[in-house]
Design a binder for these strands. Structure first.
Length: 463
RNA sequence: GAGGCUGUAGCUCAGUUGGUUAGAGCAUCAGAUUGUGGUUCUGAGGGUCGAGGGUUCGAAACCCUUCAGCCUCCCCA
């Protein structure tokens, strides 16, 4: 028999871990609701055609495809066709509805777009929804990178106002403030990146430029310049990009400098205006107590190719933590156009809660009192005492006290050890004497103190 | 898709130039202790040394193949 294990890139979550994760989920949910977002859930699997072509070439490779099980292959003809398709799929990278017509969801945005198009007649626009569900990617796992991970998304569709962008920035700042994670919120615009490619004289290489530029933090300007060269950017183009990268100062100073450099690009000016207007809205909307920084950063790229306007990314700003982005998002003007409903603009953000968990773990910023489950355990002495224990248990639960009974008539020692290991605070001992008097003995496990009192008094103490 | 590291008890790991019956800590179970846990002491169970093949008188160790996991690049959350 082989050792039990979980598939590569997946994890079990222990009770302690689940409670910590739920703390994050609950915090985010509360904030999403506070900002007027409505909950939504979509299936774990989507039709394969819904997902392909949405995440770029690399993304298509990373979609988990679900193989058909052949249950429908009742006719010989169909079986033959399946065998034929199988032989193709085994020899090369080939996809066919006969073999695989469904796939696991890759993110929450595309399923959301699909949902909006399907239910466009029932929804009141602008429609704002939040969604917290697992997604799957057939990636090679490494640190902070899993094959099954959870995303928490908030999106608005049906409004082009930059108030939405500002609100989403507030959600980021408010959430990480509450979670006590210091963050920097990077902001950029796809239009500014497009303008950058324009002024280099090679607008068709925008993706190459942004991919290289995105590595600025990691490999420095020298490395980026080298990669730009390899990707076919001219000397002059690289020089111009360097001018843009070298701009320093606060956000307004940066935007002013960009406006100067990009003054002949209508797209660039549009992008700069978007960002500066977003920041202006944000300043009126933000809570002065938030510590997180908002930083205009033209090197921020974001891979997903459906973004068209403002793009954002969140990184932890603590020196103690080395972690990639823990959230990101942006505006996509034509997302629903992919499913046949053009002209509906959307903007959204995503929280990578697995990474946020890892960051919080390293920073040790969990609240001290995360619920630990039952606070009281009733020991089991069997016979009439067992019945008496059940009656006491009912009274505790009626009073809202989280309590459990040891279900087996086990040795005293064993029951005590169980309670200790579970970290339960109070132990109730319903024995002969207690039952006859209609009382219980209540022992506080942290102080060792024990006294015989009524159930009502007991509820008062432990409640 | 490219590269590096690691697979020994439920878990974390020792295991010398290849040498007799593969060890420790933690965990589990039993006892010291029949209504009082954490500490301590005693004892017990638990292994196809990832798998397959090869070299050798002899392999956990050396060689080949393969599988799995971790990490880096690519890309991403």
């Amino acid at each position: 028999m082989s050792k039990p294990s979980v598939p590569q890139g997946t994890r079990d979550f222990s009770p302690v871990e689940v409670r910590k994760r739920q703390y994050i989920f609950n915090t985010l949910r509360t904030i999403f609701e506070l900002y007027g977002f409505q909950p939504l859930e979509t299936p774990a699997m989507e039709n394969l055609v819904t997902l392909t072509g949405k995440y770029g070439e690399e993304g298509d490779r990373l979609i988990f495809k679900i193989l058909n099980n052949g249950l429908n292959a009742q006719t010989d003809e169909y079986k033959a066709k399946m065998n034929d398709e199988w032989s193709k799929i085994l020899t090369k990278n080939y996809s066919t509805p006969v073999i695989t017509e469904r796939a696991l969801r890759y993110d929450l945005t595309i399923p959301f777009a699909r949902y909006v198009v399907m239910h466009q007649n029932d929804l009141a626009f602008p429609f704002r929804r939040y969604q917290m569900q697992p997604v799957w990617r057939a990636d090679r796992p490494q640190k902070g990178r899993y094959r099954e991970f959870w995303q928490c998304d908030a999106d608005v569709v049906g409004s082009t106002s930059l108030i939405n962008e500002a609100e989403l920035l507030c959600i980021y700042q408010g959430a990480f403030h509450q979670l006590q994670v210091p963050v920097t919120n990077k902001v950029n615009s796809r239009k500014m990146l497009a303008a950058l490619a324009e002024i280099c004289g090679m607008p068709e290489l925008m993706m190459d430029i942004t991919i290289a530029l995105d590595k600025l933090d990691k490999i420095g300007w020298i490395g980026v310049a080298k990669e730009l060269q390899e990707r076919g950017i001219s000397e002059e183009g690289i020089w111009k990009i360097e001018q843009v990268i070298n701009v320093t100062g606060d956000n307004n100073a940066k935007l002013a400098a960009y406006a100067d450099i990009m003054q002949h690009s209508a797209t660039g000016i549009e992008g700069i205006n978007e960002v500066s207007k977003t920041l202006a809205f944000y300043n009126n909307l933000a809570d002065g107590n938030w510590q997180g920084k908002i930083e205009v950063d033209i090197s921020l790229a974001r891979g997903l190719n459906y973004y068209t306007g403002v793009i954002v990314e969140v990184v932890c700003s603590s020196d103690k933590v080395k972690m990639g982005s823990i959230g990101g998002g942006g505006r996509y003007d034509d997302l629903t156009g992919l499913f046949g409903k053009p002209g509906l603009s959307g903007v959204g953000v995503s929280f990578g809660i697995d990474r946020i968990y890892d960051v919080m773990e390293e920073l040790a910023v969990w609240p001290e009192q995360l619920a630990t489950g039952a606070n009281v355990i009733i020991l089991n002495f069997g016979g009439e005492n067992e019945i008496y224990g059940l009656q006491v248990l009912r009274q505790l639960r009626d009073a809202g006290v989280a309590a459990e009974i040891y279900p087996d008539v086990a040795k005293f020692d064993k029951q005590m050890k169980y309670a200790n290991k579970r970290g339960i605070t109070y132990v109730i001992l319903p024995g002969d004497e207690e039952r006859e008097k209609g009382l219980v003995s209540l022992k506080n496990f942290s102080t060792g103190e024990q006294k015989m009192i009524s159930v009502a008094e007991c509820i008062e103490v432990v409640g």
